[in-house]
Structure formats: C-alpha cells, structure tokens
Amino acid sequence: MPEKSATRRPRVGLFVTCLVDLMRPSVGFAAVKLLEDAGCIVDVPSQTCCGQPAFNSGDRANARAIAEKTIAAFERFDYVVAPSGSCAGQIRKHYPELFQGDPNLAPRAAKLADKTYELVSFLVDVMGVTGVEATFSGDVTYHDSCSGLRELGVKSQPRMLLSSVEGLKLVEMKENEVCCGFGGTFAVKYGDISDSIVSKKTENVSDSGAHTLLAGDLGCLMNMAGKLQREGKTVEVRHVAEVLAGMTDTPPIGAPAEAAE
C-alpha cells in the first residue's frame, strides 16, 4: 500500500461523465471507491457533459460554452478524474485547442487539461496503485477504447490492475485496439457502417471465449453490449471500474435485474 500519511491527500473532482451519470451510476460509485481506496478525497461538483458531442459536430460555440462551465466547476481540484478515456481526452487534449488564442480561457483550459486523467491510468500513473483488492471469477477480455488508448496512452494500466483481481483471467481478443464503431453520434448518423464495425468486434469478443467484456468507456460498452445482446450472445459487459472496485452485484450492462446473482 502506498504511504498516505506522508503527503496531503489529493482532492479529486470526479467528472462522472453524462453517460455514467444518466445510464449507469454504479460506475461512478465504483470510481469513487477506487479513488478513495487510493487515498484521494473525492467530490462531485454539479456537472453535465464535457461538450464533446458539440465539439465533434463542428458546433464550436456550444462546445466552448459547455467547456467553460466544466472549467469553472473543476478548476479548484488538485485533479480531475473521469471513468472514460473519451471525456478525459476531450478535456485534456481538446479544451486547450478549443480556447486557443483566448487570453482569459486558454491558460485556465491548459491548467485543467494538465490535471485531468482517465480513471485507471490516474490510479496507476499518478497514485502509484499497483493492485486492487477485488475478486471476480471467470475469463474476461478487455477492449482498448480509442481515445483512452491513442490520446492518453491507456493500455498497460487496466491490464496491470486486472491482473491483481483474484479469480480473474484476462484473455486478449484479436484486434483489441480496433474501434468498436461507436464514435458518439456516428453510431446513429452512420448506423449501417457502425453496425458493420461493431459486428466485427463482437465476433472477436466471442472468439476470445471470454465470459465478460470490459472496457473503460461506457459509450463503447453500450454499443458492444447492445450488439452482443441483439446477436443473442451471452457475454456479459461491464465497465472495468466495476470489476476493479469489486462492485459487480449490479446486473451487467443491458441485463435485467433478475439475471444478477
């Protein structure tokens, strides 16, 4: 266990993300547990969304307006942590771009960007966590979500922590770094193409033989879970934080309450 008493416990603002807030709050509570176990003081300021849908749709005015609110809500924390590579990437990589040349907001966006992290990489890279106390039985496979992987370098951290979960065996699927076809509004705007991409993904998931599919982004997880279920496959889908926090008593994504044990 890391030495906690020697230094001041960092204050972390949890950017819960709109999808977790609305769809799957249990991921948020798993994140809180993991952060608190790692020695952080966690708070959740009033928040909505990082603004990525507006930003990626070319709507800079709304993207800026929403980002400005996020900056104001979170800049008082030592760190901002999100259980999502995509939303953390938006703050870390794209907020500075959004306010480029703005004498007031550019420095504030840059400061916030510097202290914003994706949950699992924050635990490992910043808090020095090397393992978790959790148990989970069965084979799991892990999908590397694009923004986390390519914008933030999230790759080894979730695998390292998963390897410390008692009873869990990680089996890698083929093409685990390939996009699942979610892409935010892409999944709806180009549904046919998105469907083709996610079908390849679910094929790789089932070929891996794993019983559970994990990833660090709820958007991708909802997409993959939705496709697996449409195909009648029994693979269960969860956010990696739920497993790492040992909070798997809630039903998997898209499963009815009765199915939970």
Partner: peptide, 11 residues
C-alpha cells in the same frame, strides 16, 4: 441505434 443493437435501460 436500435435498428442494429439493443439499448440498455438506465439503472
């Protein structure tokens, strides 16, 4: 979305 895949119910 639902033409191609199920949509999970929120908790």
């Amino acid at each position: 979305w639902t033409d191609h895949r199920d949509f999970p119910a929120p908790q």
